[in-house]
Simulated assay, not measured.
Amino acid sequence: MEQLLEIQIKRAGYTDEKNAIRDISFSLKEGELAGLIGPNGAGKSTTIKAILGLLPVMDGSVIFCGNKRYAYIPEQPVFYNDLTLWEHLELAASAYNINQVVFQERSSRLLRLFRLDGVRHYLPATFSKGMQQKVMLVIGFLLKADIYIVDEPFMGLDPRAIRDFLILLQQERSRGAGVLMSTHALDTAEKVCNSIILMSEGRLIMKGSLDEIRKTCGLREGSLLDCFNKLLEDSP
């Protein structure tokens, strides 16, 4: 499988005096769904910001192999107050330089998938949290990127939207896209991720498949939560 993204972060943060994250090293391959896992405050979102070049302090390297296109879906939805949902999509299509015919087909399909077709001419700023999150998913998947970087996507989504999102992720992976997904929903991550990156207190504590992590922890039938707790107990 082709390598899409290579991460080597020695240290990164918001000031020179304090490292928010340190010693983070992993890669993302074609068709891979890598779960960036950890409790609140573990450094998951900060790691994503470092990858995207959004931190003022960064010592390390982030390589998008072969100039791969990426789409970022943030944890907190961001909208222009005076633009409708459809106008947001048109703006994204313009930024992505998407052909008008392709844009019409993709946007209509995604709006139907997430049951937003009836509100395409409404203001997302007035939507519920769950609807706003679905809008961000539609915008993110509009590009058909090589790499998807998704931060806590399940927050506010109802079970049907989660199912639709996971089906869409699988379709994108089937054509070769890689996904880096930050979440603290360990039960879901255990089911859908084929590689796991475990973080705690700003550092990487383990990476690999669930079976590899179970073997390291000595928990042959353990859940991801069991393994994570065991690693925390054993860490210095």
Rank of each mutant, 00 (worst) to 15 (best):
E2L: 13
E2Q: 14
Q3D: 02
I7Q: 03
I9W: 01
R11V: 03
R11T: 02
A12M: 08
D16V: 08
N19M: 07
A20L: 07
I24L: 13
S25Y: 14
S25C: 14
F26Q: 04
K29P: 02
K29V: 00
E30I: 02
L33I: 11
L36P: 09
I37G: 09
P39D: 10
P39C: 12
N40S: 14
N40P: 09
G43E: 10
K44W: 01
I48R: 06
A50R: 01
A50T: 00
L52W: 06
L54P: 08
P56D: 11
S61D: 15
S61M: 10
V62S: 10
V62A: 03
G66H: 11
G66C: 10
G66P: 12
N67A: 13
N67Q: 14
Y70A: 12
Y72R: 04
I73V: 14
P74N: 02
P74M: 03
E75I: 00
E75T: 04
E75H: 03
V78K: 13
F79N: 08
Y80T: 02
N81Y: 11
N81A: 14
W86N: 13
A92G: 06
N97S: 13
I98S: 00
F103I: 00
R106A: 09
S108G: 01
L110I: 03
L111V: 00
L111D: 04
F114P: 06
R115H: 10
G118Y: 13
V119N: 09
R120T: 01
R120E: 11
Y122C: 14
A125G: 10
F127H: 03
F127T: 05
K134C: 03
K134Y: 01
K134T: 06
M136N: 01
L137S: 00
L137E: 04
V138L: 06
V138W: 07
V138G: 09
G140D: 02
G140E: 07
F141K: 00
L142D: 05
K144G: 11
K144H: 14
I149M: 03
V150R: 05
E152Y: 05
E152P: 11
P153R: 11
P153Q: 09
F154A: 12
F154Q: 11
M155A: 15
G156S: 10
D158R: 08
I162V: 15
D164V: 05
D164A: 01
F165E: 06
L166F: 11
I167H: 03
E172Q: 12
R173D: 02
R173K: 15
S174E: 15
G176E: 06
A177H: 00
M181K: 03
A185C: 04
A185W: 04
L186C: 09
V192D: 12
V192P: 12
V192T: 14
C193E: 09
I197R: 04
E201V: 07
G202S: 06
L204Y: 02
G208M: 03
G208L: 07
S209P: 00
L210S: 10
I213E: 05
I213F: 05
K215W: 00
R220G: 10
R220T: 14
D226C: 06
D226Y: 05
L231T: 04
L232R: 15
E233L: 13
D234G: 05
S235W: 08
P236I: 02
